[in-house]
Computed example of a mutant assay.
Amino acid sequence: MAEVKLHGFWSSPFSHRVIWALKIKGVNYEYIEEDLSNKSELLLKYNPVYKKIPVLVHGGEPIAESLVILEYIEETWPNNPLLPIDPYDKAIARFWIQFGVDKGPIFSDFFRSTGGEEQEKTTKELLEALKIIEEQALGDKKFFGGNAINLVDISYGMIAYWFKIMEEVIEVNVLEPNTLPRLCQWAQNFMEVPVIKENIPERYKVLAYLRHIRQKLLLEHLNK
């Protein structure tokens, strides 16, 4: 069997997307932790375009970008499928995965905003996007995949864990039961799935790391 390696970073939700999929599929792999301030020659060789993690290396061949990697994993190891069999249902799943990609910058803007009108604007935009996800993609289902998680759930996994820590760091709450009850319940259900719960970074470490990044952003803003 061809060797599988994953170059990642301990706190990255994008790395953990790949880890979850590999675990669900039962794929044995070697994990290689990258220092993002001093990227390895292998990482730069395997992903010369973006120079980012995660990178999956299968039989010596690299695949970059987490959602591309997830599709590759799904096609290479078809056991425990993470996408529907029906072509229409599969297309709908991919639509919502792409919606998450398109709205990704809003999460970054939310974390980087420094208060005032900017904070209000990004919070409003984020709440609108999350409401669409709750009402149109999730609906009354336990998971986006129905009774079991699929690639849509995995692609939105950041919301269930990392986003709640982001909210604590910037002291603004968006994902709340009174405004997004079904999405909050989904986040709780998602975090109770054993393969997810057993493969996330320790909360206090992520909190400290995000606080450090937030402090740097605020200092940069003050020095402008």
Score class of each variant (00 low, 15 high):
residue 3 E to I: 00
residue 5 K to Y: 08
residue 6 L to M: 11
residue 8 G to N: 07
residue 10 W to N: 06
residue 17 R to F: 12
residue 24 I to R: 10
residue 39 K to S: 12
residue 40 S to G: 08
residue 41 E to R: 07
residue 43 L to F: 03
residue 49 V to M: 05
residue 57 V to Q: 01
residue 60 G to E: 12
residue 60 G to R: 11
residue 63 I to A: 09
residue 66 S to I: 00
residue 68 V to H: 03
residue 77 W to A: 12
residue 80 N to F: 07
residue 80 N to M: 06
residue 83 L to S: 14
residue 87 P to K: 01
residue 91 A to E: 09
residue 99 F to N: 07
residue 101 V to T: 13
residue 112 R to F: 11
residue 113 S to T: 06
residue 114 T to A: 12
residue 117 E to D: 11
residue 119 Q to Y: 01
residue 121 K to F: 08
residue 128 E to L: 11
residue 133 I to W: 08
residue 136 Q to C: 03
residue 138 L to E: 05
residue 138 L to R: 02
residue 139 G to M: 11
residue 140 D to R: 08
residue 146 G to H: 14
residue 151 L to H: 15
residue 156 Y to A: 00
residue 156 Y to G: 02
residue 159 I to W: 02
residue 159 I to S: 03
residue 162 W to K: 10
residue 163 F to G: 07
residue 165 I to E: 14
residue 169 V to T: 06
residue 173 N to L: 09
residue 177 P to V: 15
residue 182 R to P: 05
residue 190 F to H: 02
residue 190 F to M: 04
residue 200 I to L: 15
residue 200 I to H: 11
residue 201 P to Y: 01
residue 201 P to G: 09
residue 202 E to H: 13
residue 204 Y to N: 13
residue 208 A to I: 00
residue 213 I to R: 12
residue 216 K to R: 11
residue 216 K to S: 12
residue 218 L to D: 14
residue 221 H to Y: 14
